[in-house]
Design a protein around this nucleic acid. Structure first.
Lengths: 120, 120
DNA sequence: TATACTTATGAATAGTTGTTCATATGTTGC
DNA sequence: GCAACATATGAACAACTATTCATAAGTATA
């Protein structure tokens, strides 16, 4: 027999309805969580996180980043575009050269937070 | 003509060697950055971050999570395995039911940090 | 304007990943 | 043991993504 907190839901499966309702109540909007996933997607690729990590030190031009990562200029440029679209980096042009830098301090904080989790 | 801080490097491209060297000097190990990318990969998928977000409230069984996300049991189970392998969640069995919960507080912190970046 | 140089971008490709479907594993009560 | 239930897992497929290659766009200098 079913106890008080186990009822049918959604047509399938026995669940603890109150737990589900409570969790969903404090759950952020669907869309906000999607945005959050998109944000973290930027940090989930090796090339991108290496770029971001480099930029913590200083602004750098594309050629410098390319050399530091030992990657191709094209690959770096493509990833920089993604990071820029996500507003994690910004760029300034100085003649032929384009310098990239972190858009704000959050990048630094998020990476530091991740590091803390890893290294313990 | 080349200025003092612009020299050949790596066989291609003119770069600011000192900037590159300085950035690489304080740069974390290649492997550590790869681990970091792997960590953030967990947060980069909508299903996974929704699961993590749910578990902030309370531990939940697979059926509850499945109902809350309106997903299939299989999809949820697959993602839970990934999260568990990354040691972001842990599980305890109570009879037929398996409850999942956050492994530590870092998940909460990382999500909060991301939220802060989004909502401003 | 012609050339050299730095960065950006489109298309194609190879590798990765999330979901689904079917089924297996593990648990409880009869 | 058997039936019912909850969760886990392997294989296949579709969708997505990062890189490469070729080339375009923007800039400075002769």
């Amino acid at each position: 027999m079913k106890s008080e907190d186990e009822i049918e839901f959604n047509g399938e499966g026995v669940i603890h309805e109150d737990v589900v309702k409570r969790a969903l109540a404090v759950q952020p909007e669907e869309e906000l969580l999607a945005d959050l996933a998109d944000l973290f997607k930027n940090f989930s690729d090796t090339t991108r996180i290496r770029i971001l990590s480099l930029l913590i030190s200083d602004e750098m031009c594309v050629a410098d980043i390319t050399a530091a990562l030992n990657a191709t200029q094209s690959a770096v440029s493509h990833q920089l575009r993604i990071l820029k679209q996500s507003r994690l980096v910004k760029s300034r042009r100085a003649g032929k050269i384009v310098f990239y830098s972190l858009a704000d301090d959050h990048v630094k904080t998020i990476i530091a937070m991740g590091m803390e989790h890893i290294t313990e």
